[in-house]
Computed example of a mutant assay.
Amino acid sequence: MVSCTIKDWTGTDTGEASLDLRVANEQNAPHIVHRALRRQLVNSRQGTASAKTRSEVSGGGRKPWRQKGTGRARAGSSRSPLWRGGGVIFGPKPRDFEVKMNRKERRLALRTALQSRVQDLIVVEDFNDQLPRPKTRDLVSALTRWGIGLEDKVLLITAEKQENTYLSARNIGNLKLILATNLNVYDLLAADRIVITAPALEKIQEVYSDS
Rank of each mutant, 00 (worst) to 15 (best):
D20Y: 06
C4Y: 07
R38D: 13
E206C: 11
C4E: 07
K7P: 03
R106Q: 10
E202G: 15
I196C: 06
V124G: 00
K161P: 14
R117G: 13
L150Q: 14
A190T: 13
S50Q: 06
I178N: 11
A180V: 09
L175P: 11
L41G: 14
M101P: 14
L156D: 01
Q40Y: 11
I196T: 03
T53P: 09
E206I: 04
R79K: 15
G173H: 09
D126M: 01
T197F: 00
N171D: 06
Q205L: 08
S77F: 07
L177G: 14
D8R: 03
A191V: 03
T53R: 05
V33F: 10
R106M: 06
R54A: 02
I6A: 06
Q67N: 04
L188Y: 02
L21T: 05
P92Y: 03
E202R: 15
F97W: 13
V42I: 09
R66L: 04
V185E: 08
L41C: 10
I194H: 03
T158Q: 08
A142D: 00
R22K: 14
L114N: 02
L201V: 01
S44A: 11
V23E: 07
L201R: 01
K93D: 03
A24F: 09
S77H: 10
R133P: 11
R137D: 12
F127P: 01
T14M: 07
S80I: 04
A36M: 12
H31D: 14
S18V: 09
L183F: 04
W65E: 07
S77V: 13
R72Q: 08
K100W: 10
R133W: 04
M101N: 13
D187P: 15
N182K: 15
N164H: 07
Q67W: 01
A142K: 00
G47I: 02
T5S: 04
A142C: 02
K93Q: 10
G76I: 03
F97T: 11
L179A: 10
G61Y: 05
T144S: 01
L177P: 15
P81E: 03
S50G: 05
S55P: 08
C4V: 10
G15T: 04
G69L: 02
A29K: 13
R133S: 12
A73S: 12
R145C: 03
S18R: 11
S18F: 05
E206P: 13
T165Y: 13
S55Y: 01
P92M: 05
G61N: 10
D138R: 04
S44P: 11
Q119D: 08
N184P: 05
Q130V: 01
T197M: 00
T53Q: 05
E26T: 14
L143N: 02
N128V: 06
G11D: 00
Q162M: 11
M101Y: 12
K100Q: 13
R103N: 12
E206R: 13
T165S: 14
V99Y: 08
I32T: 12
P81N: 06
S211I: 15
G60Y: 00
L179N: 11
R54E: 00
I157K: 05
F97H: 15
R95E: 09
A109P: 14
L41A: 11
Y166M: 15
Y186V: 03
L155E: 01
I172D: 01
L167V: 09
I6P: 06
W65T: 10
E160C: 06
V57F: 12
D129N: 13
V99L: 14
V88M: 08
V118G: 08
G91W: 00
E56M: 09
S77L: 07
D13K: 07
N171W: 03
I122N: 02
